[in-house]
């Protein structure tokens, strides 16, 4: 486990004690964790850092979990989001799934189930990224055949911008 790549997690919950305890446990499992106690801080943290998976509570003061999910999915193409909430209903689960949530878990949640969900979300992110990278490589190869060096640089820069 210690040799496997560290998964970068963004944990968002307004229940500070819960956030602290679950973070302590996840650190023992070699996750790299950043925490936020409200939606605005979560969005700001996601802007600054590169995260593999975000775990978001639904009910929070200010920007709620559904809004955070929507914003993060729009701005971070490969970020996988898990909803972990004590307020989940069938309606909210359907809504979050439509918005691209990887999984919806209810608090209190079995820790092993939670860790499994994070690993599955990470695998999905890596798979999607790998498939995308393959396409990029293919595109670059095609570019290299028919473009001038400057044209290739321009096209690469555009691809980099689209990446975000």
């Amino acid at each position: 486990m210690e040799n496997s790549p560290k998964i970068h997690l963004l944990m968002v919950d307004d229940e500070v004690k819960f956030l602290q305890t679950i973070t302590d446990r996840l650190k023992l499992k070699f996750f790299e964790i950043t925490t936020a106690t409200n939606g605005s801080d979560a969005i700001a943290a996601a802007e600054k850092g590169q995260f593999d998976v975000a775990v978001i509570d639904l009910q929070m003061p200010g920007i709620d979990g559904v809004q955070v999910l929507e914003i993060l999915k729009k701005t971070h193409k490969y970020l996988e989001v898990i909803i972990l909430s004590g307020h989940a209903t069938i309606e909210s689960a359907v809504n979050c799934t439509k918005l691209g949530a990887f999984k919806i878990l209810e608090k209190p949640c079995d820790f092993d189930t939670f860790v499994d969900a994070i690993r599955q979300a990470y695998e999905r992110r890596m798979r999607k990224k790998f498939e995308h990278d393959q396409l990029v490589i293919q595109e670059i190869q095609e570019l290299a055949l028919g473009q001038s060096p400057l044209g290739i640089l321009r096209a690469l820069s555009k691809m980099e911008k689209d990446e975000k």
Binding site: E15, K17, F18, T21, I22, D24, R25, L28, Q59, G86, H87, E106, K107, P108, C109, F111
Partner: peptide, 24 residues
């Protein structure tokens, strides 16, 4: 009642994670 159940779930989640941490 919905808000109380949310509060109780949070409390149980903290107890559950803290005992889990003790086990770890």
């Amino acid at each position: 009642n919905a808000s109380i159940s949310h509060e109780l779930k949070n409390i149980l989640a903290i107890i559950s994670e803290t005992t889990g941490f003790l086990n770890d």
